Amino acid sequence: MEDKNNPQDGQLQIELTPEVAMGNYANLAILSHSHAEFIADFVRVLPGMPKAPVVARIMLAPENAKRLLAALQDNVQKYEAQFGPIELPELAQAGSKTANPFGVPQGNA
């Protein structure tokens, strides 16, 4: 009898539910960390709205945060090779690696 909960041949089966597949729009990410984890809060900021809701919070072990960073760098490089450079004027002006277009204070955990 086949067990559908056990991946065959060492392959992980990933399930994407319709609700999660819809995604959440976020135009701001607030990153913080402690010695044990990295936290990314994804926020939707809309003009004229007094509050900006966190639409998702992702918590990662430091090793997985570094893996995510490498995967994002790889994907940005592939994107730019196909579509051209992604311009970030706020980074060019500040000479910084951190974008903060809304003036939100940095988070600390």
Rank of each mutant, 00 (worst) to 15 (best):
P53E: 00
L88H: 09
Q13Y: 02
L68E: 11
A36D: 15
G23A: 12
A65W: 01
T98I: 13
N64A: 01
D74N: 15
F42K: 01
I30T: 01
A61R: 10
A61G: 06
V43T: 00
A56H: 09
V20M: 06
L31S: 14
P18T: 03
A109K: 04
N6Q: 11
K97L: 11
A70G: 08
K66E: 07
Y25M: 06
D9Q: 08
I30D: 00
A29C: 10
A99P: 09
I14A: 14
L28P: 00
I58A: 09
A29W: 00
F102R: 03
M22A: 13
P101Q: 05
G107Q: 11
Q106R: 04
D3A: 11
M22Y: 06
P47F: 00
A71R: 15
E2V: 12
Q93F: 07
D9L: 06
L28S: 00
A26Y: 03
K51Y: 07
L12N: 03
R57E: 04
P18Q: 10
D74A: 14
A40Q: 03
R57M: 03
I30M: 02
L16I: 11
E19V: 14
P53I: 02
N27E: 09
N108F: 02
K66V: 09
Q82C: 07
K66L: 13
A56E: 08
A109S: 05
E2C: 08
V20C: 00
H33C: 05
Q8L: 02
Q73V: 14
Q93E: 10
Q82I: 12
A61N: 10
L60I: 08
D9H: 06
H35Q: 03
Q73S: 15
P50W: 01
V43R: 00
V45C: 03
G84M: 10
A92G: 07
F42H: 04
P7D: 07
I86T: 10
I86W: 05
A71Y: 13
P62N: 04
E80M: 13
A40Y: 04
H35D: 10
Y79P: 05
V104H: 09
M49C: 01
L91G: 10
L91M: 12
F102D: 08
F102P: 11
F102V: 04
G95S: 04
F102Y: 15
Q11R: 11
Q13D: 05
L12W: 10
R57W: 01
E2W: 05
V45P: 01
A36M: 14
A92P: 07
V76Y: 12
L88T: 14
Q93H: 07
A94G: 15
G23P: 13
N27L: 04
N5K: 12
R57A: 04
D41A: 01
R57L: 05
A36P: 08
V76I: 15
D9A: 04
L16H: 02
I58D: 05
K97M: 11
Q8H: 10
L16Q: 00
T17D: 05
Q11E: 12
D74W: 07
Y25T: 02
Q93L: 12
P105I: 05
P62L: 11
E87K: 14
A99I: 06
P89Y: 09
E19N: 12
